[in-house]
Structures are given as structure tokens and as C-alpha cells.
């Protein structure tokens, strides 16, 4: 350690000094790293934002790349179950709305990928992780969308659960992620409303239409609860994520919040939640609910859900079949650039 470095008493100053020291040496003792980490954690505790070029613990960088890319992948794969219904929407109004929703999802994926790239990982690496199965995406998108009512249930339940997950991230500690999430959340609320409207229309329609809505709720209810993540006891990243404000509430709290807000909406639609144990608890002011089938959850996460293979095949197929377009665009751009250079000479 270089003793000539002027260590000031002021914490801010100490922080700057140790950070520049890090730059000059690159090799630090464990104790120095611990000091830097303490200063870093204190910055986050003070609600300071971390920006891409700031010093950060390697674990912070890796965790953020993992979570942000998973989030981006979920947006991109999330387009697939809905894309199927764009050409089958029952009216122009529904078609325009669904198209806009899917386009938003592409946009959200792109915001998140570019935020993720600020941490020094390339877009190609991220795609490679998704396509090879190394990176995960939300397991909910491995369920099939078999009827038009599923577009309603997905918007109402899946986007509803996503919003509950995402709103706290607008205040997360990593600047680019927080900024991307502000934009995502602003745009997401129409997604849930259009889904609920589809359900409402079906529920006020013929008995067959209402039956379609009930069937969609039956199939999407439990996967939506699982979407909020494993129970707190099983959740390995919770404590660290809370510290870094990647998480503000535990999975179980978020799940309870989702249930409490959704059950009255199901009542309004005149639909029955497919859980015989669902009951309002006067004492807690919340709904008690039945056992979640976590075996199913882990099966789907591990790749054995009903549509895992199809989703990846479609995604990888789209990427590979689009390769010639990307190459042609690049060749065109290079040719134009060369032409411009020639003119200048």
C-alpha cells in the first residue's frame, strides 16, 4: 500500500482516494477490497445511484448482468406466446392493442439489453446465453396460449404480476436499470388494462365466452403466482438483493400483494379463482391461499415446461433466419461509408 497517499478524514475524500488507488494498482489486498465494498454499500444505503463506470464489487456487476439480462430475455421471449394471436384477434381494436403491446415488449427488451451492456457485456454474448439455455427467462412464457381468452388472462394476470415485481425496481441502485424501469413501468399499465378489458368483454358475453374466460383463469392463475418467485425460504438471492435495492419486498410479500389485489377483480368479472382454499382472513385483512405446486415450477424452470423447446426453437430460428438481413444491412452501411471516404479524398 502506498503510504504517501493523502488519506483525508472526510469520508467522501477517503472514498475518492481509495477509488483512484484501485485504478492505479489493480491488485488489492483483501482488506482494501473490503474497505471499498463498505464504502460502496454505504453509498447505496444513502440512496446514491451507481453508474456504469463507478467502481463496483464484481458480484454486484455479475448479479446485475444476470438479473437485467433475464429481465430482457423475458420481454423478448414474452412476445412469442402473444405473437400467435395478432393475426387472430377478434377485432381491429383488439389487434391494434395487441400489436402495440407486443411492440412495447420488444422495446422493453431493448431498453434492458442496452442498460445491461453498460456493464461491459456485449449484446451477442447476451443472445448467446439465451439461445444456449445458459440464461433463464421468466418460466411463465413456457405455457401455451390456446385461446383468445388467454390474451386477456396474460395481460390481466401475467402483466399484473410483472408490474408488482417491476415498480420497486424504478428505485433500484443501478442507474441505467432504474431509468429503464421507469420507462417500462410507464408503458406497462396499458398492458394490464387491455387484458382486463378482454376478460370483461368475454365475461359479459355468451355463456361459452364466459367459460373461455374461466378456463383461461384456471390455467394461468397458478403459474402467475409462481411467477413471483420461490418462497422466501427457498430464495437464495433475497438478502443480497435487498441490500442492493434490486428487491424491496420478498417474493412472498409480493405474492400476497398480487393475490389481495387480484381476487376482488376476479369477483368483479364473476370468475372463480381455481383455489378451494382461497379465503379472506379477517384478522390479517389478506387472502389465505392453498399450496403452490413448486415441483411444477422447478420442472418448468429446468426446461420441462409445456413450451420450453418451442419457445427456444422459435427464438433461435428468428435469430438465424434474420442473419442475412443483418449482414446485408452491415454490408450496405460499409459500402456507403467507403463511398463517402472516396469522395472526401
Amino acid at each position: 500500500m502506498n503510504n504517501s497517499l493523502p488519506f483525508g478524514r472526510d469520508a467522501q475524500r477517503a472514498e475518492r482516494v481509495s477509488l483512484s488507488f484501485n485504478l492505479k494498482t489493480n491488485t488489492m489486498s483483501d482488506e482494501q477490497i473490503r474497505n471499498l465494498e463498505e464504502i460502496f454499500e454505504a453509498r447505496i444505503a444513502r440512496d446514491e445511484k451507481i453508474e456504469p463506470k463507478d467502481w463496483m464489487p464484481e458480484k454486484y456487476r455479475k448479479t446485475h448482468i444476470r438479473q437485467m439480462s433475464q429481465h430482457a430475455h423475458s420481454e423478448i421471449v414474452g412476445m412469442l406466446p402473444e405473437g400467435n394471436w395478432i393475426s387472430r384477434a377478434p377485432s381491429l381494436r383488439r389487434k391494434a392493442a395487441l400489436l402495440a403491446k407486443v411492440q412495447d415488449e420488444a422495446g422493453h427488451g431493448l431498453y434492458l439489453y442496452s442498460a445491461c451492456e453498460t456493464l461491459g457485456v456485449s449484446r451477442d454474448e447476451l443472445y448467446e446465453q439465451l439461445h444456449s439455455g445458459k440464461a433463464k427467462y421468466s418460466s411463465i412464457f413456457n405455457y401455451p396460449t390456446v385461446s383468445w381468452a388467454d390474451m386477456g388472462a396474460v395481460g390481466w394476470l401475467v402483466d399484473g404480476a410483472a408490474i408488482i415485481n417491476q415498480v420497486p425496481l424504478c428505485n433500484t441502485s443501478f442507474g441505467p436499470y432504474a431509468r429503464a424501469m421507469v420507462r417500462v413501468c410507464k408503458e406497462e399499465s396499458f398492458h394490464q388494462r387491455q387484458g382486463f378489458e378482454i376478460m370483461l368483454k368475454l365475461c359479459n358475453g355468451s355463456p361459452e365466452q364466459k367459460e373461455m374466460a374461466q378456463d383461461a383463469l384456471n390455467r394461468w392463475w397458478w403459474p402467475s403466482l409462481m411467477m413471483l418467485g420461490p418462497t422466501d425460504a427457498e430464495s437464495i438471492h433475497t438478502e443480497q438483493s435487498m441490500k442492493w435495492k434490486l428487491k424491496r419486498k420478498s417474493n412472498d410479500d409480493l405474492r400476497q400483494q398480487f393475490i389481495d389485489q387480484t381476487v376482488p377483480q376476479a369477483d368483479l368479472l364473476g370468475l372463480t379463482i381455481p383455489d378451494p382454499d382461497m379465503k379472506f382472513n379477517e384478522e390479517t385483512g389478506s387472502y389465505d391461499f392453498g399450496e403452490i405446486n413448486w415441483d411444477e415450477f422447478w420442472q418448468v424452470v429446468k426446461g420441462h415446461g409445456p413450451c420450453n423447446k418451442k419457445r427456444m426453437k422459435d427464438r433461435v430460428g428468428a435469430w438465424e433466419e434474420g442473419a442475412w438481413v443483418r449482414d446485408a444491412a452491415m454490408a450496405h452501411a460499409e459500402k456507403n461509408e467507403a463511398k463517402k471516404l472516396k469522395k472526401a479524398i
Partner: peptide, 8 residues
């Protein structure tokens, strides 16, 4: 871009 480690 400026380097935050040189902010001092």
C-alpha cells in the same frame, strides 16, 4: 467520457 475515478 470522464472517468469517475478521477473525479477528485
Amino acid at each position: 467520457a470522464s472517468n469517475p475515478e478521477h473525479n477528485g
